[in-house]
């Protein structure tokens, strides 16, 4: 299977062994890669990856300076007097950042649990059962994927005023639970599960809920994990809605709080960067743990968190 430029006639055992060794390490049966000058490719890749990592690295280095060091010219990587954790301490003790991180965690966790539960139930209903109106209700759900959440801020805010939910956790959380795209993705997955499995259970007298819980759910762990991760990322990073519906400093989520703090203190770049790095860290850690699931999830479902 290893591609070789040697003429077929000379394809001796030794030649094949050489060809195999020179083949790309990752090539699998039926999978090989285009042969491009690898050194040029490597250089381009290193350059591009460096450019892409540079803002984060520079942000981290800047966060390790104090406000005097960061404002000193010329711009240096290693500040005079050495690195300091002072900016981190200042941000963590001088602002509500720890509280905002907790708020984000709470909001994102509740949004994730509710969204996945509600969406999985609905996807099961749309995929495995029949009832009057199923067709058009699902069509309406699909159509709603087109609605940009941003256009709803005005009516939704007024609605929240009417319900008395402005500046409450419920006000932040409830509107984020509506995720038609998650229903769509889960339904598509459930559609692919063979029906024979549930027929057998049905013969044994299992009801719908039992089938949902004991047959469909266990078979859907991978997709449920992907959906959960993306809902969590989306809720954790969401800026606009929490920003609209909260004023109370004690209720802000991390993305909103960081934005407020930036505007309040004026020119404090080191503190800004320390805050940014703390805000960046949780999901980067999650990514290191769930890298495979996240990458596979994007590839197979086309879901993203933003």
């Amino acid at each position: 299977m290893a591609t070789t430029t040697a003429p077929a006639g000379s394809f001796t055992r030794a030649a094949r062994r050489t060809a195999d060794r020179s083949a790309p390490r990752t090539s699998v049966v039926g999978q090989s890669r285009p042969r491009v000058p690898r050194l040029v490719g490597l250089l381009a890749l290193v350059l591009m990856a460096f450019v892409w990592l540079l803002p984060l690295i520079w942000g981290a280095v800047s966060a390790l300076k104090d406000e005097t060091q960061i404002a000193a010219l010329p711009v240096t990587w290693i500040p005079e007097g050495g690195f300091t954790l002072g900016s981190f301490t200042r941000v963590l003790t001088g602002s509500n950042l720890p509280l905002w991180l907790l708020n984000s965690l709470f909001v994102a966790a509740v949004v994730t649990v509710l969204t996945v539960a509600v969406s999985a139930l609905a996807a099961y209903g749309f995929s495995r059962t029949t009832f009057r109106g199923r067709g058009w209700l699902f069509a309406l759900t699909i159509a709603a994927i087109m609605v940009p959440p941003q256009i709803l801020i005005v009516p939704l805010f007024r609605q929240m005023l009417g319900l008395g939910l402005v500046d409450t956790y419920a006000g932040i959380i409830l509107p984020q639970v509506v995720a038609p795209v998650m229903v769509f993705v889960l339904k598509k997955f459930f559609d692919g599960i063979p029906r024979e499995l549930e027929e057998a259970a049905r013969v044994d007298g299992a009801g719908q809920l039992r089938i949902f819980w004991s047959i469909i759910m266990p078979l859907s762990r991978s997709i449920l994990a992907a959906v959960s991760i993306f809902v969590f990322i989306g809720a954790w990073n969401n800026f606009l809605w929490p920003f609209i519906v909260t004023n109370d400093p004690a209720l802000l989520t991390m993305p909103v709080g960081l934005n407020v703090v930036k505007n309040a203190f004026g020119v404090t770049f080191a503190a800004d960067m320390a805050g940014a790095m703390i805000g960046a860290l949780p999901l980067l850690i999650i990514f290191l743990f769930f890298q495979r699931q996240i990458i596979k999830g994007v590839a197979t479902t086309g879901l993203g968190g933003q």
Binding site: P55, A276, G279, L283, L284, F287, I295, G304, G305
Partner: peptide, 18 residues
């Protein structure tokens, strides 16, 4: 993968600050 995909996981506020 980490280099190219990591920024996508950042909250928008962090991106703006940086």
């Amino acid at each position: 993968r980490l280099a190219f995909f990591a920024p996508y996981l950042l909250p928008v506020t962090v991106v703006s600050l940086i």
